[in-house]
């Protein structure tokens, strides 16, 4: 029972770290004004960490709580929320599948996560706007998603290694 409480507490701390990273990302100047939606995806560091150290159930929980709190804090509506949820769900689903396939290291899984996060949002936009041309953005976004995925993946794998012993106690 005590173990479970400690786990819940740690996941709560990790969720708040993910929230701080989301906030940091909003504060930073946009990487490109020409193509909207290019982001580093800093909160994904935490999501990948939780996925590898705890599991899918925990990662889904942290990810969705983050998305909803971000919408509350930064004034989202149903529209913006649906983009965030689509990106978060699709990237977690594909990251889980590719983690199970055991083909890639954390960096490869993170690349998949970065690209699929963009893909989820673009698909929702195409569906909502009924404009297939929005899909053109995916070409640029898959390049930036890959680069972001590599950076986030390297940070995550360092984190997973360094915190190996620490998490074992939970």
């Amino acid at each position: 029972m005590r173990k479970k409480t400690r786990k819940v507490a740690l996941l709560g701390v990790l969720t708040s770290v993910a929230l701080v990273l989301s906030y940091l990302e909003v504060m930073l100047p946009p990487i490109s004004t020409a193509v909207p939606g290019i982001k580093m995806g800093l909160p994904n560091i935490i999501i990948i960490f939780v996925l590898y150290k705890f599991g899918l159930k925990e990662a889904v929980t942290v990810s969705l709580i983050r998305v909803f709190i971000v919408a509350l804090i930064f004034g989202g509506n149903i529209m913006t929320l649906s983009y965030s949820v689509a990106g978060a769900v699709l990237s977690l689903a594909l990251m889980t599948i590719f983690k199970k396939l055991n083909l890639f290291s954390i960096v490869g899984v993170s690349i998949i996560g970065g690209i699929s996060h963009n893909l989820g949002q673009i698909l929702v936009a195409i569906f909502l706007f009924d404009t297939i041309q929005i899909g053109y953005y995916m070409i640029v976004l898959s390049i930036t998603g890959t680069i972001a995925g590599v950076v986030i993946g390297i940070i995550s794998s360092v984190l997973v290694k360094k915190l190996e012993k620490f998490v074992k106690n939970f």
Binding site: N102, S105, V107, G108, I143, V150
Partner: peptide
């Protein structure tokens, strides 16, 4: 799968995605 092989796959993945996207942009 060995770690070395996985990292090799990571690189292949990144290169393929960027190559396809760059061709698309072109």
């Amino acid at each position: 799968m060995s770690n070395k092989r996985k990292i090799k796959n990571d690189i292949i993945l990144a290169v393929i995605v960027i190559a396809i996207a760059a061709t698309g942009l072109l």
